[in-house]
């Protein structure tokens, strides 16, 4: 039987010498983990994931050295979430901005909660 491919096999994913993915910042690991989970639950196949990621990586204006690889990853995840009718890009944009406002309204040492965002 052929091996199952998962988002962890994505081309270009930075990996350590032991073959584990390498993340520079926590949000990258979060995005990676969400993708792995959605794939496990059958929201998309590996081929669908690979094609969405590839579309983002090859979009004009992307960095040549792959330093924005996880930006592409998040964009691919966003577009699949939108295509599957879970939430439109506009809804995702609005919620992202609300999270930004929530972070800025939260004093140091307090949990950043969505309801902290000023209206």
């Amino acid at each position: 039987m052929s091996r199952c491919e998962t988002p962890a096999d994505s081309p270009g994913l930075p990996k350590s010498a032991e073959g584990d993915p390498v993340f520079a910042e926590p949000w990258q690991a979060q995005a990676f983990a969400m993708t792995v989970r959605l794939h496990e639950q059958g929201m998309f196949t590996w081929a669908e994931w690979a094609s969405a990621l590839s579309r983002e990586v090859h979009r004009p204006g992307r960095a040549d050295d792959g330093r924005d690889y996880f930006d592409c990853w998040v964009a691919a995840l966003s577009s699949l979430v939108s295509e599957r009718g879970v939430a439109s890009e506009a809804e995702q944009d609005a919620l992202s901005h609300r999270w930004e406002r929530a972070a800025e309204a939260t004093p140091h040492g307090k949990p950043i909660l969505l309801e902290n965002a000023p209206d």
Binding site: M34, Q92, S96, W99, E100, E104, P107
Partner: peptide, 24 residues
């Protein structure tokens, strides 16, 4: 004190949506 980069905020937004819909 606190700031989210656009990417951090986007990932938070995705997490919120997917959690609310029971997908993760």
């Amino acid at each position: 004190d606190n700031h989210f980069s656009p990417m951090e905020a986007r990932v938070r937004a995705l997490e919120t949506i997917l959690t609310q819909k029971g997908l993760i």
